[in-house]
Design a protein around this nucleic acid. Sequence first.
DNA 1: GTGTCGATGTATCGGGCCGATACATCGTCG
DNA 2: CGACGATGTATCGGCCCGATACATCGACAC
Lengths: 211, 211
Amino acid sequence: MLEFAILGLLQEAPMHGYELRKELTAKLGAIRAAISYGTLYPTLRRLQAAGWITEANETPTTSDVPALTSRRGRVVYEITAEGKERFAQLIAQAGPETYDDTGFGVHFAFFARTDQATRLRILEGRRRKIEERREGLRDVLGRAAERLDAYTMELQRHGLEACEREVRWLEELIANERSGRAPTAPTTGAAGGRPEDNSPPPPGESRKERP
Amino acid sequence: MLEFAILGLLQEAPMHGYELRKELTAKLGAIRAAISYGTLYPTLRRLQAAGWITEANETPTTSDVPALTSRRGRVVYEITAEGKERFAQLIAQAGPETYDDTGFGVHFAFFARTDQATRLRILEGRRRKIEERREGLRDVLGRAAERLDAYTMELQRHGLEACEREVRWLEELIANERSGRAPTAPTTGAAGGRPEDNSPPPPGESRKERP
DNA sequence: GTGTCGATGTATCGGGCCGATACATCGTCG
DNA sequence: CGACGATGTATCGGCCCGATACATCGACAC
């Protein structure tokens, strides 16, 4: 999962570890806590060993001061062609982990780089999974009610409500997706229409308007 | 976290691994997926090594079929006195992990075995943590809006809404707690299923651990 | 009879991810 | 000029997961 997120972020710009963590936190703050360095640095090493990222020479920034770089300094990583290929492959293939809380959140965060068919497939898979969880909770609340104390039941009830709300949210997103609009855009005409402009790598950054 | 849940469940009845997993899934279904056996069995071994649980002889069902027990059969675990002490200690001391999603859920699921002061402390700690997450999301949605694509923003928006809702839920629970009522119970009598298996260890209500 | 299928049941292994910890540089403010 | 917080890289022990293997049992089919 982290591998996916790192490859996705490095396609926007080369970065060093600390920066990567900040961007990761900003982008995924809704679905998980800040990534640990104890995870990040070994993962970077793993990605580098696999050939998906490489160390980029830190820009000497105009008038040199070259020799002083002997200090440990920042290590800037950039994605390789193989890395981009790997990212595309990770987007396309959806394993079961694509639909759990973290996996779905990470995939969703990179929907702007995902084609519409895949977006739809992921949203529907997620909906299915949440519906199953919802049914499980309904079962427990119904059949096993007298075996559970009031606090446990309240926890299930709250979880059930969250499931129902997420299903509704997904329904909306799926409907939007099918009608070719941007995420939540009951908005006015601002830049909405073209769903096909999400092609990933072009230098023109894909900022969609929604202020 | 799993250690906590196992000790809590084994105080209700001795159980073998498979059964433990089912009960765990029923009790914690709202907050996490089913526990993996690759976690459960090593954890049971760890708890046993620590002296907090022991293997209970499966009831030989009086005098018959003795030698046949050579088969691998089920291994029933029961909690020890040290285990109960450990559980009480884990309830009392609240580290940072007590307030993250999983940690809070597990603690909440055993609120029926937790004294009111501790319940209140945990609920307020959780509220504080969620409020911080909420502020973080508001920051991102406000300040960094133009740096994010529409899907990422929608994810944050949805996460923000979930935070706001959880804060309201916690507020309710805290108010109930202060007024001395059971969770959200316009329902039947006391806080629990059957009164006999509830309130197991100390009839003495308020153990004062206030620092 | 026997085949096989799903539920029950215990167990290991590689690997991802975490928190704690350590250490070094830099700008700023008192 | 010294303390402090932000920036920055890195390791280690340990929890937990998914995949996998294997064994027993009742039930239902053939």
